[in-house]
């Protein structure tokens, strides 16, 4: 069973169509509504997804971990992390699943840079993401072409081993770190990311660095 885990915060406009597209490629769609203040919950239900609701906003990392625990309960074989804002393309899923099984790995990580498929804004492609990549390599010790990509597929072993403690965006570095720590096999896979508008900015990047540094002192 392949379960899509969709973290969502105020995505009422796009979540419905994302879920409907997902159903063509996965067995179950799980939306983790992170205390959205709009109609994300109702829209996701209407589109047929299972919806778990965080009563307080705990961040994307926290939502993914909630998704993993639910996936474990219902006995999923694979989970796929899929953004609810319509930036990913569901067309990448079947190819990714096939590649993952052929390569016999535990984790597949989407990449915007293996092939030039995405129209990434200049500042993000040339400054933010390269900086993020350096920080990721420093903290996780795993060299990735695109560490900060929310498209991932994890098999049961991987999503049960990996425990996301970074509630906010720093989970993007925490996941590779745990892949290395637990010796999980992984591959990168080229996927497309569409850009409508700007997500995270420089300030967001500094917050992530702060979370990572602080996280070093907590277990």
């Amino acid at each position: 069973m392949l379960v899509a885990v969709v973290p969502a915060y105020n995505e009422e406009k796009r979540i419905g169509s994302v879920i409907r597209d997902l159903f063509e490629h996965v067995d179950k769609v799980l939306v983790v509504d992170d205390a959205s203040t709009d109609n994300t919950f109702q829209e996701a239900r209407k589109a047929g997804a299972i919806v778990l609701k965080h009563v307080l906003n705990r961040g994307q990392g926290a939502a993914l971990q909630t998704g993993h625990e639910y996936a474990n309960i219902i006995g999923a074989d694979y989970v796929i992390h899929f953004d609810g804002d319509g930036q990913f393309s569901t067309k990448d899923i079947s190819g990714a699943m096939q590649h993952m099984q052929e390569a016999e790995v535990d984790v597949l990580l989407g990449s915007r840079f293996l092939q030039k498929k995405s129209n990434i804004p200049w500042f993000k492609a040339k400054i933010l993401l390269p900086l993020g990549r350096i920080i990721n390599n420093l903290f996780s010790g795993l060299k990735l072409s695109d560490a900060h990509n929310g498209f991932r597929i994890l098999n049961r072993k991987a999503f049960n081993k990996i425990k996301i403690n970074q509630d906010r965006m720093a989970h993007a570095t925490e996941i590779p770190a745990q892949i290395k720590k637990y010796n999980l096999k992984y591959v990168e896979f080229p996927i497309e990311v569409k850009y409508y508008e700007y997500g995270q900015n420089m300030a967001g990047g500094f917050k992530i660095l702060r979370d990572l540094l602080l996280g070093k002192f907590l277990r």
Binding site: V32, H54, V55, L56, A62, E69, Y70, D167, L214, L218
Partner: peptide
Amino acid sequence: NVKLDSLNRDLTKIVRKDALDNN
């Protein structure tokens, strides 16, 4: 700061449990 972070993690655990239980 460290204390706040650990409080945050505890809070997340409660929110997560609530989300899983209420499904």
